[in-house]
Protein backbone atom coordinates (compact mmCIF):
# COMPACT_ATOMS: atom_id res chain seq x y z
CA UNK A 1 0.00 0.00 0.00
CA UNK A 2 2.73 2.47 0.99
CA UNK A 3 4.73 1.75 -2.14
CA UNK A 4 1.66 2.08 -4.32
CA UNK A 5 0.82 5.42 -2.73
CA UNK A 6 4.35 6.69 -3.12
CA UNK A 7 4.29 5.80 -6.78
CA UNK A 8 0.96 7.61 -7.12
CA UNK A 9 2.59 10.61 -5.49
CA UNK A 10 5.48 10.24 -7.93
CA UNK A 11 3.03 10.39 -10.84
CA UNK A 12 1.58 13.58 -9.38
CA UNK A 13 5.10 15.02 -9.02
CA UNK A 14 5.91 14.22 -12.62
CA UNK A 15 2.72 15.74 -13.98
CA UNK A 16 3.05 18.71 -11.63
CA UNK A 17 6.62 19.41 -12.68
CA UNK A 18 5.72 19.17 -16.34
CA UNK A 19 2.87 21.64 -15.88
CA UNK A 20 5.05 24.03 -13.87
CA UNK A 21 7.55 24.06 -16.73
CA UNK A 22 4.91 25.17 -19.24
CA UNK A 23 4.26 28.74 -20.33
CA UNK A 24 0.65 29.37 -19.36
CA UNK A 25 -0.01 30.79 -15.94
CA UNK A 26 -3.11 28.66 -15.40
CA UNK A 27 -1.16 25.49 -16.16
CA UNK A 28 1.62 26.51 -13.78
CA UNK A 29 -0.87 27.01 -10.96
CA UNK A 30 -2.52 23.68 -11.68
CA UNK A 31 0.91 22.09 -11.60
CA UNK A 32 1.59 23.56 -8.18
CA UNK A 33 -1.73 22.29 -6.94
CA UNK A 34 -1.02 18.74 -8.14
CA UNK A 35 2.45 18.89 -6.64
CA UNK A 36 0.95 19.67 -3.24
CA UNK A 37 -1.37 16.70 -3.44
CA UNK A 38 1.62 14.52 -4.19
CA UNK A 39 3.43 15.85 -1.12
CA UNK A 40 0.44 15.12 1.12
CA UNK A 41 0.06 11.57 -0.09
CA UNK A 42 3.74 10.97 0.32
CA UNK A 43 3.85 12.35 3.86
CA UNK A 44 1.10 9.95 4.83
CA UNK A 45 2.76 7.04 3.09
CA UNK A 46 6.19 7.55 4.64
CA UNK A 47 4.70 7.12 8.08
CA UNK A 48 3.02 3.82 7.26
CA UNK A 49 -0.66 3.44 6.43
CA UNK A 50 -3.66 1.86 8.12
CA UNK A 51 -1.87 1.09 11.38
CA UNK A 52 -4.69 1.33 13.86
CA UNK A 53 -7.75 3.49 14.27
CA UNK A 54 -8.25 7.15 13.44
CA UNK A 55 -6.49 9.30 16.02
CA UNK A 56 -9.61 9.91 18.03
CA UNK A 57 -9.40 8.79 21.64
CA UNK A 58 -13.14 8.20 21.63
CA UNK A 59 -12.53 5.16 19.46
CA UNK A 60 -10.82 3.47 22.41
CA UNK A 61 -8.85 1.33 20.07
CA UNK A 62 -5.72 -0.74 20.67
CA UNK A 63 -3.59 1.54 18.52
CA UNK A 64 -4.05 4.72 16.59
CA UNK A 65 -2.48 6.05 13.38
CA UNK A 66 0.20 8.61 13.90
CA UNK A 67 -1.40 12.04 14.42
CA UNK A 68 1.73 14.08 13.73
CA UNK A 69 1.78 13.82 9.90
CA UNK A 70 -1.94 14.47 9.87
CA UNK A 71 -1.46 17.70 11.79
CA UNK A 72 1.32 18.67 9.41
CA UNK A 73 -0.78 17.97 6.36
CA UNK A 74 -3.73 19.84 7.74
CA UNK A 75 -1.53 22.90 8.07
CA UNK A 76 -0.19 22.33 4.60
CA UNK A 77 -3.63 22.04 3.05
CA UNK A 78 -4.63 25.42 4.40
CA UNK A 79 -1.38 27.10 3.40
CA UNK A 80 -1.40 25.68 -0.09
CA UNK A 81 -4.99 26.74 -0.44
CA UNK A 82 -3.98 30.32 0.39
CA UNK A 83 -1.16 30.05 -2.09
CA UNK A 84 -3.33 28.71 -4.88
CA UNK A 85 -6.01 31.31 -4.29
CA UNK A 86 -3.49 34.13 -4.31
CA UNK A 87 -1.70 32.83 -7.39
CA UNK A 88 -4.95 32.49 -9.26
CA UNK A 89 -5.96 36.05 -8.54
CA UNK A 90 -2.45 37.19 -9.37
CA UNK A 91 -2.70 35.41 -12.72
CA UNK A 92 -6.07 37.00 -13.33
CA UNK A 93 -4.70 40.44 -12.47
CA UNK A 94 -1.62 39.90 -14.63
CA UNK A 95 -3.76 39.01 -17.56
CA UNK A 96 -5.90 42.11 -17.03
CA UNK A 97 -2.87 44.36 -16.84
CA UNK A 98 -0.65 42.91 -19.52
CA UNK A 99 -3.08 41.19 -21.84
CA UNK A 100 -1.21 37.91 -21.80
CA UNK A 101 -0.86 34.85 -19.61
CA UNK A 102 2.32 33.65 -21.26
CA UNK A 103 5.20 33.88 -18.81
CA UNK A 104 7.74 34.09 -21.62
CA UNK A 105 6.20 37.34 -22.75
CA UNK A 106 5.97 38.57 -19.20
CA UNK A 107 9.70 38.55 -18.55
CA UNK A 108 11.05 41.96 -17.75
CA UNK A 109 14.24 43.36 -19.14
CA UNK A 110 16.94 44.56 -16.83
CA UNK A 111 16.90 48.04 -18.29
CA UNK A 112 13.15 48.52 -17.99
Amino acid sequence: METLMTITAGVLFTVGTYLILSKTLLRIIMGMSLFTHGVHIMLMAINGLKRGAAPLLGEEAESYTDPVPQALILTSIVISFSLTAFSLVLAYRTYKEHGTDDVEQLRGQEND
Binding site: G10, F13, L21, G38
Partner: peptide, 13 residues
Protein backbone atom coordinates in the same frame (compact mmCIF):
# COMPACT_ATOMS: atom_id res chain seq x y z
CA UNK B 1 9.60 15.90 -14.85
CA UNK B 2 10.25 12.20 -14.93
CA UNK B 3 13.53 12.76 -13.11
CA UNK B 4 11.85 14.75 -10.35
CA UNK B 5 9.08 12.17 -10.06
CA UNK B 6 11.49 9.28 -9.90
CA UNK B 7 13.84 10.88 -7.39
CA UNK B 8 11.01 11.80 -5.05
CA UNK B 9 9.37 8.38 -5.37
CA UNK B 10 12.61 6.64 -4.57
CA UNK B 11 13.27 8.92 -1.63
CA UNK B 12 9.76 8.33 -0.37
CA UNK B 13 10.10 4.57 -0.60
Amino acid sequence: SIGVGTVFTLIGI
